[in-house]
Amino acid sequence: MHILVLLKMAPDVVEDLEIAPGGKALDLDCLRMILSESDDHALEQALLLKERHGAKITALALDAPEVDDALFTAAAKGADRVMKVVGMDPGFTTREAARYFSQAIAEEPGLLPADLILTGVQAIDDLDGLVAPIVADGLRMPYLGIVTGVALEASAQAARAIKEYPAGVRGEFLVQLPAVLGIQAAEKPPRYVPVAKVRAAMKSVKIECSQALTLADGGLPLVGVVEMKRNEPAGHAEMLEGKPDQVSGQLCGILAERGLF
């Protein structure tokens, strides 16, 4: 069993986000990039499958600041091979990201055949599409998204995947392999790996590089950001200020006035 995990870095929104001069994009200099949360879950789901069934895991990432950290961490957790696609035009969109992934998958020896291709269901910056369905379509593989659990059938020709629906309802799907799954959450939260193990991986593991090809067809259909701005919540809510006991007293008065307790 070969599981290919596609990883994309995304801005850490815990940090303050700044808009670049020109007002159409985030200021990359002020960003901290982290592995997109659901991609981290995709990696974890791959590791769980490896533990249960034995598998080779290849992690393929797109070059971005901090991507080496993410890949060494993936190796420290149990990925067998780590590779990054380099040389993309900066500021590529999600749809372009999907095509960079697809090109690398097609071109680099050993990425195919893959029985499962796992990636996050959606990243917070997926403005012009989602990676998983595009890669699936390109490879003519079935796609299922919002997946929160994967079990292999005994034949290893198919998997049972749990997909989330609204209101806590889930669906159990039988998916013929190879397939691409957009993972929402792994069956367990992503594991913690000690820093020492990541450091060891930095010494012993080599990140392979795949050179991105220029996207040939003169670009994708137009999606142009006209303006980007920070959501300024200030002014919306009435803000209560003071020490915890002061604001609590204030809030309590407001709730009591409304007969809420």
Partner: peptide, 19 residues
């Protein structure tokens, strides 16, 4: 559009009319 977990609002032009 509301992106980046709700932290950013973007106005996006969705394809030229002749696109």
């Amino acid at each position: 559009c509301v992106m980046y977990g709700g932290k950013i609002e973007a106005t996006v032009e969705a394809g030229a009319p002749s696109g």
